[in-house]
Design a protein around this nucleic acid. Sequence first.
DNA 1: TTTAGTGTACAGTTTTAACTTTACGTACTT
DNA 2: AAGTACGTAAAGTTAAAACTGTACACTAAA
Lengths: 185, 185
Amino acid sequence: MNDLEGLEPEQINRISKARERVIDSIGKNMDLYGITLSIGHLYGYMYFNEGPVTLDELSRTMGMSKTSMSTGVRTLLDLKMIDKVWGKGTRKDLFEVVPDWHQNFSDYFSIKWRKAVEGNMIALTKSLTEIRDMQAEYAENAEILRLLLNDEEKIMEAIKYYRWLLKLIEALETGKIFELIPKET
Amino acid sequence: MNDLEGLEPEQINRISKARERVIDSIGKNMDLYGITLSIGHLYGYMYFNEGPVTLDELSRTMGMSKTSMSTGVRTLLDLKMIDKVWGKGTRKDLFEVVPDWHQNFSDYFSIKWRKAVEGNMIALTKSLTEIRDMQAEYAENAEILRLLLNDEEKIMEAIKYYRWLLKLIEALETGKIFELIPKET
DNA sequence: TTTAGTGTACAGTTTTAACTTTACGTACTT
DNA sequence: AAGTACGTAAAGTTAAAACTGTACACTAAA
């Protein structure tokens, strides 16, 4: 339910303005999370609204189709930025934001970057063994060997980087990052 | 210059295959950096090639227009993933990858996230003062006051998060992150 | 079983972004 | 001064995505 309903128009206007500045700003930078502007707006609205909302309310407030709300909400669910919650007395699904942005940030990395890193690692190690096989095979061909050693070196560097990145991701997942870089009190 | 030129077709094929697996994998996950698949490929090729390359070489190798190479290269330059280098004897621009991926990662955050965080911070503080002004103004209206306190709380939480995020970004920029989470030796 | 309410898959449309072709400005060569 | 090589801006085209409307499956109530 829209929490501004029932106020004077002028009051609604002033509060909305303050909120919308923030909502716009959040939405605009949501592309860093791979999220479209309109879904960013969606999230911003949910962030300020007191209590959970339904797809129909979102559709009405955002002036967009219910289908778009459905897919948008699902994207935000996948990123663990919102939760589906139970509301007795209604058959509609209810959604509300997960208010802990530190957690959102960590989850995002866990979800997106870990997958990418692990995928790249597989490709790197596979190619590394191939390169090394060829090194043995072309051991007497100096020209090729130089190339192969160079490739090996580069792949090794990449692997080192990804191992470091995995440690960073792990620190985010376990919350150890907040020992290293403390939150505000 | 393509570093595989002059080899036997079969040798080129084998080395290329090992490289391409990695290049594909890198390119595929470059969207995390907000980079398109083809620019990711571009980067991957440059990563393995020995020595800097020109726009014409890239165009030929990638099978894409020179204009696309120009814009692609500029994107990578903006993200500090490649450098423009001097080559005597040629009037063409030469480009090569910055091989330190730890640095790439740090730069990316510095460039993209810092800008977003600072933008959001401005919006948040601006709206925060507005909300607080209204709190003083509507001090005797309990219903509105409750709403305003709620909004204030949420904005404060967001500001706290962004301050933490700035510390993380700073740790990346200064390299302090590598004391907290050490690189491989 | 029917009926109404709800979320989503699907197909179609519109908007956006990627890419290409052409053309131009600048700088080097002769 | 004239010609050539180079990188990029501009306009046009093609491919991708965001978004909508409709239809359908599922559930709960009557």
